[in-house]
Design a protein around this nucleic acid. Structure first.
Lengths: 337, 337
DNA sequence: ATTAGCACTCGAGATACACGACTGCTAATG
DNA sequence: CATTAGCAGTCGTGTATCTCGAGTGCTAAT
């Protein structure tokens, strides 16, 4: 693979990514100053095809990059573009002073990334149960209504409103919460329910029904909690590869299925930005797409990932740069624990 | 409009709603026991067309209901089907013990309705600023981190995490919040910022910068708050009328544009379930669709609306019944203030 | 008032054809 | 020996034409 071949592959991929139509030798020589004739380019392209970097939709059309071609491009040729300064500022600003609950943070992140990249984006939230209890407080709003606030060491806060059952009205919920908070600090949310029964002082036992329910809900055990946020599906309609309604349905079905997303993302080990191209994607429904994923952290640990999906012909460099910046900011937003 | 015409119109609409293809006289007489020949039906259909209830896509095809035809059907012929008991139970269960924040309630409602009806659904949240402050509390989680909880008379609770600025660390935020809460009770959130400056005791003034920001965020003035929740857009792909990608884009664009939704919904005065068919819809982008909307209440007042969008050929009866049930449950869920 | 019969209309799908983009190959060139 | 010009060959796309069939509207008979 000499310099000229690399140059041709690079130009061809970039042209195809931008315009979406198979690229011929003539186009290439006309548009870019390569200093050689179309015939030479044809020869090079034939070589590149033989080596598996290019494909031929049919005899009389231009070439299209193969998965292998894209892979080579991403690994060897890609110049990671620096992001616009105003863009970075936008990303930062989106996280500034927005220490919402985790669910909103996830949501906003999905929206931010899909807005910037114009590709559909999924963000997978941390497993709440992996975090450890840091603090539990109660705010009593009315005799029958309270808000419970839990903080974890994973750097986020959840709150839930709860109705106060008749037998507890007027009792000192705040003190009980403080008591529970003290004695269960550091326990993983997952084990909270079990530990509570063991460690709790006797005099709280008669309220165990209430507290148990509270804790179940705080731990997000309620199956109503969504662990994935999806945004930007509409942008798919802009790409000719999704003109086919059946394909659209398949891909959308994948993106909306939490278990599929979970399976795909939770097997990625690396904390780096990763790219999966076409058949490299371990999910049948989207083998004709590419995905770029990145991890985000809380307390030094990888706690969740985000994913951008696009046609194989996607703007790898830009998406990678955006994901890198966003995952960093998101991690930082989760850091102030 | 005699009985037989009504019967024919009814059957034709129902057949068309179910199958989506123009209905001919032969089909009608074959499928349903009308006791007359296709020729008779043809004559009746010609009359119905002349009166504007039916349309003819082209000479040699069956008939299709016109907007006027659907309107007559909805107003005069529709038998509102009772909902399945299990379905009602599902709806109730969705709201039971889920006194989340308003944003989640909206979200869940959109999801619930789109799941049940298989049409895309939008829910418009109450204007936070119209509500009056009922209570403001603080939970201090760490020296630099607090959660503020606000309750309004409109029956819901919002909480926000805030970083505590250095100069306030260690001060009695809870007492200040209680003070603010006492003196500003009953003030509309919209005016909170202004009123705060007037009514606050002098010794809180030096922290006004902080509290002002807090109040701005609680009032939802932060433009990051989404007032609409959209769910179920994927179901559009199942209807042949949305096979056309351009049309899909147009409709989706409408549904995702908050200002459009706001304009459409906020002009509906009635608290009843309302149906708008085709050109009756006051929005150019979706004149070839129908919408069904309903209001929901909090504290006796209409505070928001929900909207189901579908092809003109939609299951009006069922959607109306679902919206009625859901809006009632949602109102009830907002009632525990 | 209803119905049978029939000529007519018009869209959908199939077939055929011309056009053009691009290739691969061969032979000429510096 | 790499490069290039020239040209025949391939194949998808767009256009025109045709057939088929569902469904109508009209007329005349019941």
């Amino acid at each position: 693979m000499d310099g000229r071949k690399r140059r041709i592959l690079e130009l061809l991929i970039e042209d195809y990514v931008n315009l979406g139509e198979p690229v011929g030798s003539r186009t290439l020589s006309r548009k870019y100053q390569l200093g050689v004739s179309p015939a030479t380019i044809r020869n090079e392209m034939a070589d590149l095809e033989e080596q598996g970097y290019l494909e031929h939709p049919h005899t009389s059309s231009g070439r299209v990059p193969s998965d292998k071609g894209y892979r080579y491009y991403v690994d060897q040729l890609l110049s990671r573009p620096g992001l616009d300064h105003s863009l970075i500022e936008w990303i930062r600003a989106s996280y500034r002073a927005k220490a919402h609950e985790i669910a909103w943070l996830i949501h906003q992140t999905a929206r931010l990334v899909s807005d910037i990249t114009a590709y559909p984006t999924v963000v997978l939230a941390p497993r709440g149960e992996d975090a450890h209890l840091a603090d539990l407080s109660v705010v009593i709003l009315a005799p029958t209504l309270a808000v419970l606030v839990v903080q974890t060491d994973a750097g986020y806060v959840e709150s839930r409103t709860v109705g106060v059952p008749p037998e507890l009205i007027g009792s000192d919920l705040a003190a009980m919460a403080a008591e529970i908070s003290r004695s269960l600090e550091g326990v993983p949310l997952r084990d909270l329910e079990g530990e509570m029964m063991k460690r709790l002082r006797r005099d709280l036992w008669r309220y165990q029904g209430f507290w148990r329910e509270v804790i179940q809900r705080l731990a997000g055990a309620g199956e109503d909690e969504e662990r994935v946020a999806l945004s930007g599906t509409r942008s798919m309609l802009n790409y000719p590869e999704f003109r086919d309604v059946e394909r659209l349905k398949r891909v959308l079905g994948f993106l909306e299925t939490e278990s599929e997303i979970d399976r795909l993302l939770s097997t990625r080990e690396s904390g780096q930005v990763e790219v999966l191209i076409g058949t490299e994607v371990p999910a049948d429904d989207i083998q004709d797409c590419s995905v770029v994923t990145a991890a985000y952290r809380a307390g030094g640990q990888v706690v969740g990932r985000l994913l951008v999906l696009g046609p194989r012909r996607m703007q790898y460099g830009r998406v990678m740069a955006v994901l890198e910046a966003v995952s960093e900011e998101l991690s930082r937003a989760l850091e102030w624990a």
